[in-house]
């Protein structure tokens, strides 16, 4: 039975080759951030998906990350692993009748969430895109202007529509992910485990709202603008080659604060709150105004609503 020998030999060789490759590739891919502590490097490499980690494993992962960030950025990070609040379903409402298109939410979000500012070797990541539409014309996405550069806002002939992740109740991105690296938290935000994402970008393809962003290069963030108050599932610094997205500022919301875009908005057109709480502002708006959602025909059931309080 000579052939059996051949096959076992081949299999063994292939296995050995595979293990060799596996050992080699992390050092190749992460070659830019050398870690002195060898076991930290390997432990991070072998760490599990966040959702199946025990409490202890989560704490260990956080400590490892803190050490890595300390080395990389020279700053001490606070990385929370606080779970979702019970009895909350967050929704976001945006009053497009009164949005003035100042894009303060965009920049505030970038700073709060440590997104890459772009540059020669990295891409710029903005979770919110504001589209400017001409008044008196039907709202067709293709007619929106994403790069308006007006000296003064608002343009009286325009209305504005900020778009970010719609936090779908039926998210196509979560369905498409091959590794379960992204999921929806109990409160409704879809999050990414940046340590589990393999960077295949099938979710970027699957999202109908262009909400998912990929780190094409190593994120470029000015050290003095880093926000060190972070959550594991939201704004902690990411590596190159992973997908990220808006998460309603989990690091703030679970701390009882509003998302940063809500705080930054000078006109108060952004409304955020718990749908399950009958006394909440969002509940009131739902009763008072006609709301609508983007691409309703896709049945993604967004938790992000638009309405207009004027006109």
């Amino acid at each position: 039975m000579n052939w059996q020998k051949t096959i076992t030999r081949r299999t063994v060789l292939k296995l050995l080759g595979g293990i060799g490759l596996m050992g080699l590739s992390p050092s190749l891919a992460l070659g830019v951030d050398p870690l002195k502590k060898k076991n930290d490097f390997m432990d991070e490499f072998f760490q599990k998906n966040y959702r199946i980690m025990s409490k202890k494993e989560k704490l260990e992962a956080v400590e490892r990350l803190k050490r890595r960030y300390q080395k990389e950025y020279g700053k001490t990070f606070d990385i929370s692993t606080q779970d979702a609040n019970n009895g909350t379903k967050y929704v976001y409402l945006l009053d497009i009748g009164r949005c003035i298109g100042c894009r303060k939410c965009v920049t505030a979000c970038m700073k709060e969430n440590n997104t890459s500012r772009g540059g020669e070797k990295s891409s710029q990541i903005e979770y919110i895109q504001v589209l400017k539409f001409k008044k008196g014309k039907p709202m067709r996405l293709e007619d929106g202007d994403a790069y308006y550069n007006d000296k003064q806002v608002p343009d009286p002939d325009a209305f504005y529509m900020p778009i970010a992740c719609q936090q779908c109740e039926n998210p196509p991105c979560v369905k498409a992910c091959p590794t379960k690296a992204t999921w929806t938290e109990k409160e409704g935000m879809t999050v990414v485990d940046y340590n589990w994402c393999i960077g295949c970008r099938v979710c970027v393809n699957a999202c109908p709202y262009g909400a998912r962003k990929f780190n094409w290069g190593k994120p470029n963030i000015p050290i003095d603008e880093l926000n060190t108050e972070t959550h594991y599932l939201s704004n902690r610094p990411r590596s190159k080659g992973v997908v990220e997205k808006c998460h309603f500022c989990i690091q703030r919301v679970r701390d009882g604060k509003y998302p940063q875009c809500h705080k930054a908005c000078p006109t108060g057109v952004r409304k955020f709150g718990n749908l399950l709480d009958p006394s909440s502002e969002v509940h009131y708006i739902f009763k008072k105004y006609k709301v609508f959602r983007l691409k309703e025909d896709l049945n993604t059931e967004p938790r992000f609503y638009y309405y207009s309080s004027v006109g």
Binding site: S25, L28, P178, C197, I198, G199, N215, G241
Partner: peptide
């Protein structure tokens, strides 16, 4: 793909296929 070294996340039983 962005993280070649994480390919094992696709290989059961170590990884998690969705």
């Amino acid at each position: 793909i962005g993280h070649l070294e994480r390919l094992w996340h696709l290989i059961p039983p170590f990884g998690l296929l969705n």
